[in-house]
Simulated scan of single mutants.
Amino acid sequence: MNTDVLPQGARIGRTAIRVSDLEEITEFYRTVVGLSVLGESNTRSVLGVVDTPLLVLEGDTDAPTRHRSSAGLYHTAFRVPSRAALGDALARIRDHWQLGGASDHWVSEALYLTDPEGNGIEIYRDFPRDEWPRSDDGRVRISTEPLDLETIEAAATGNTQAPPGTDIGHIHLEVSSLDAFRDVYVETLGFEVQTTVPAASFVSAGGYHHHIGANMWHHRTGPASGRGLSWFEVILPETQALDALRDRLAGSQATVTETDKGISITDSDEIEVRFLVET
């Protein structure tokens, strides 16, 4: 086992978003994204598929609007298991909301939208992994091409809920420094760079096209604050991977917090990343 990088099988777990209007945003993710409400209180909603939680909404009516200079969430990317499921997502978006964009990325087909409080969302499905184009050094090649929405629409089945197998395939961040991002996520945490484009970098574990994207397209300069991304999880496949990560972090400047299920760090933009082992 290479203890310098995260292992095959590492993946994104839950994402948490701080919102002002908890009731409205819960209903949005239920109706438009198709998630089920798995748990609810006056200050928190947990949404997911079947019995798998994917999204935590933290209600805070006093949280200020995210400042336009603040780092934070670019989008949460919900991965569906089939083109039919993507077609159903497109139908829900058109029935209840507004599509913001759509792209063929060579590795995936993706729909884009924004929730009522400005949090970006991607809903996508992967092409088979053996069809992903790769460069000579083995890294995945990602592009942005127009998506044939008619093909996606034709695959729809009328399902109003996200199906079993839906998960969070990746998370995309807006950062204040790509060098600082790579220092934390690549050099310290052990993700591997898969591709770079102007002002953006995409990293993953186990050769996936990307588990985390980071960009500077909107010139964010300050740390994350206010509404928006609160924290996200990285799930590791075995205890040995968590132990190896602890060892790497011990030799870094990162502040590590032990939690009930694993460890937590805060990155260079004050975004909390939680690591725990698959159960």
Rank of each mutant, 00 (worst) to 15 (best):
N2D: 15
P7K: 05
A10S: 15
S20F: 03
E24D: 12
I25D: 03
R30F: 04
T31E: 13
V32L: 07
G34L: 09
E40H: 12
S41D: 12
V49D: 04
V50R: 15
L54I: 13
L54R: 06
E58K: 11
G59F: 08
P64Q: 11
S70M: 07
S70Q: 12
A71L: 00
R79I: 06
R83Y: 02
A85F: 04
D88H: 07
D88S: 10
L90D: 01
I93H: 02
R94D: 14
W97G: 03
S103F: 13
W106I: 05
A110Q: 08
L111P: 00
Y112W: 10
D115L: 11
E117F: 08
G118H: 13
G120Y: 10
D126I: 06
F127E: 08
D130I: 01
D137C: 10
G138K: 12
S143F: 11
P146R: 09
L147Y: 01
A154D: 14
N159A: 15
T166K: 09
G169S: 12
I171F: 03
L173Q: 01
V175W: 00
S176Q: 07
S176Y: 03
S177D: 14
L178T: 03
A180V: 10
D183I: 11
V186E: 11
T188V: 13
L189F: 10
G190C: 05
V197F: 15
A200H: 06
S201L: 06
S201Y: 03
S201Q: 06
A205R: 05
Y208N: 04
H209D: 10
H209K: 09
H209E: 11
H211I: 08
G213S: 05
A214P: 01
N215A: 03
H219K: 13
S225G: 06
W231N: 00
V234A: 02
E238Y: 08
Q240W: 05
L242M: 08
A244T: 00
A254N: 05
T255L: 12
V256P: 02
D260V: 13
G262T: 10
S268W: 04
D269I: 00
E272L: 05
R274S: 04
E278L: 12
E278R: 12
